[in-house]
Simulated assay, not measured.
Amino acid sequence: MIGVTPTAAWGEEQEPVDGMPTVEIGEDGEPSITVPEGDAPTDVQLEVLKQGDGAIVEAGDNVLVQYTGVAWSDGSVFDSSWERGAPASFSTSGVVDGFRQALEGQAVGSQVVVVIPPEFGYGASEGHELQDETLVFVVDILATQHLAA
């Protein structure tokens, strides 16, 4: 039997955390993100919007996710699997540190919002257009595949 992977997080909704970006979910599941007023945090901030009930993402896992990323400075979308029309698949070891922190330890089915200061994002990538930007991602964790032992 072939399983069908959902295209959006299905976990139980959690209470919002004050001071974090707010997220509205469209009918198709695509999030829109509103960045709060004020200075960006200087450490990685993580909030679980929906608590999933699936397998836990482990270090180095290959994950299947939907995500939208916006710049803290102006709220503009710089990357979105939703806009491309398909979930993205990658290893947690192949993304910026703040994104890795947002995935590892979370349950499949969860939706998280993460705020990533430059030093945990593209700060070390000299000349990268987002080098000095605090990033905000909403990530729907759809599946994980553990590394072979």
Rank of each mutant, 00 (worst) to 15 (best):
A59S: 11
V114H: 07
I25Q: 01
G94R: 13
V4W: 04
F90H: 14
P6C: 03
P16S: 07
V44K: 05
Y122E: 07
I25A: 01
R84Y: 04
F99V: 03
S76T: 13
L135S: 08
S91A: 14
G127S: 09
L64C: 07
L49R: 12
A59P: 07
V114S: 03
V23M: 04
L46I: 15
D18L: 08
E104K: 02
P31N: 09
H128M: 09
V108F: 00
A143H: 14
M20I: 05
W72T: 08
G85V: 14
V113N: 02
I33D: 01
G94N: 14
D74F: 10
E13H: 04
D74N: 15
E129P: 15
T92W: 00
P16W: 03
D18R: 12
L147M: 14
W82Q: 13
G105T: 07
N62T: 14
V48N: 05
G19D: 08
L64I: 06
V63I: 11
T134L: 04
G121F: 08
Y122I: 08
G127D: 09
G11S: 05
S89W: 00
P41M: 09
E104F: 05
G75E: 11
D43M: 13
G123Y: 01
G69S: 03
D53E: 15
S89C: 02
E12F: 00
E119V: 06
D28K: 11
Q106I: 07
V113L: 06
Q14M: 11
S91W: 08
G127A: 10
E27A: 13
W72D: 05
V48T: 15
D61M: 02
S32F: 01
R100G: 13
V44C: 12
W72Q: 02
T92V: 14
E83W: 00
G85M: 12
Q131M: 13
G19S: 10
G54S: 10
V139T: 15
T134R: 07
Q51S: 15
F137M: 13
V48F: 02
P41L: 09
G26N: 12
